[in-house]
Design a protein around this nucleic acid. Structure first.
Lengths: 200, 200
DNA sequence: GTCTATAACTCGATAGAC
DNA sequence: GTCTATCGAGTTATAGAC
């Protein structure tokens, strides 16, 4: 159990501030205040706002993807795997509903953020899953379908509602708690929706 | 055929710049340069960056939603309607792939942007569609399903890939043209995916 | 390592001449 | 309406005392 150093303390504060405000709206002063240190300290430890943000972005991206992409590599029946992926993804999203929009926001502004990252991990799990889909098609367990699109569909159905959460809440006039409740119910529905579509 | 006034000229320039850079990264100087006018002129016509952005955001949001949400209100067989919605949505998205991320980016930072907007239009078309889903369930044309989730699923499957486009392009090492080709092929697949899932 | 002070810069907005 | 010039506020980043 490592002690919380000043450095880690600042990183945690930076995560909170960057997620809440985005890169441009977050200031080094904000982060310093959140971490209860002087703003010069933040520069002392991380040289620049850019360096600090790079560390934060990598950490968040890895956290967001690694959990669920491990599941794709597990040795599970394809239907079970889909259910497990959907359940895990939506559960994590309910706990961290602001992550998808954060990642998309920053990724679009600076695609170079993707360079030294978890991208290869994603590609690996995608490849593993697509092979399994091919096999299931050959065995006649599922209908003929483009494996890449199936992979995309799973993520789409899980993540998209969190991308448009403010719009959904505004249109349906629901609170954050009610939104989470909706997503919780949606969990089973999404898995059913996918499996109904591909099973033979 | 209305002549292009300076005012409209600036709005078009502002759209381009705001979409490319986002609200905070775009400067009034950028917009003025894009519109080939002095930066004081932009303030003269629109008072503030906020006012100008509000106009741009509303216009883009309306454009992005109105086309496809009209279709939901048309008198079509439910399967035909789903195919038409999917086709239209993806076609528009291929022509304007940067709009979803733009709207999400700004919507999350300032949810008040949704106040005086197309939100009611979305809600209306959603309501119409959900009624149709209920009827189709009663008629035994489709299986039992949460209508709201079906509505969400359609949008998810169409829009989500455009949200994560930089990530997809980076992971698959594909160009923008190849991405568009993928989305074009995906059009039929998505409609099939949905219909396979709900038909009896 | 930690602080204060400030340099250097950019941006939104306006004043004022034409 | 259109331009130049500039103010004032807010930012990153660093220098230098402790």
């Amino acid at each position: 159990m490592k002690e919380t150093t000043t450095e880690q303390h600042i990183i945690e504060a930076a995560k909170k501030v960057f997620i809440a405000k985005g890169y441009e709206n977050a200031t080094m002063r904000d982060i310093a205040k959140e971490a209860n240190v002087n703003s010069a300290m933040v520069h002392y430890y991380f040289r620049s706002k850019d360096k600090l943000f790079g560390i934060v972005f990598d950490s968040i991206g890895k956290f967001f993807y690694e959990n669920v992409y491990q599941i794709y590599k597990e040795d599970l029946d394809i239907f079970e795997k889909i259910r497990k992926v959907v359940y895990n993804r939506i559960t994590i999203l309910i706990q961290h509903p602001e992550l998808p929009s954060f990642l998309v926001r920053e990724m679009f502004k600076r695609p170079e953020l993707l360079e030294h990252n978890y991208s290869r991990q994603i590609k690996e799990s995608c490849d593993v899953f697509m092979l399994q889909v091919e096999a299931a098609m050959a065995n006649g367990r599922i209908r003929k379908i483009n494996p890449m699109n199936l992979f995309l569909n799973i993520d789409s159905l899980c993540v998209f509602p969190f991308h448009i959460r403010p719009l959904m809440q505004h249109c349906s006039e629901i609170s954050e708690a009610e939104f989470n409740e909706l997503m919780n119910e949606r969990c089973t529905d999404v898995a059913d929706f996918i499996i109904q579509s591909i099973k033979l």
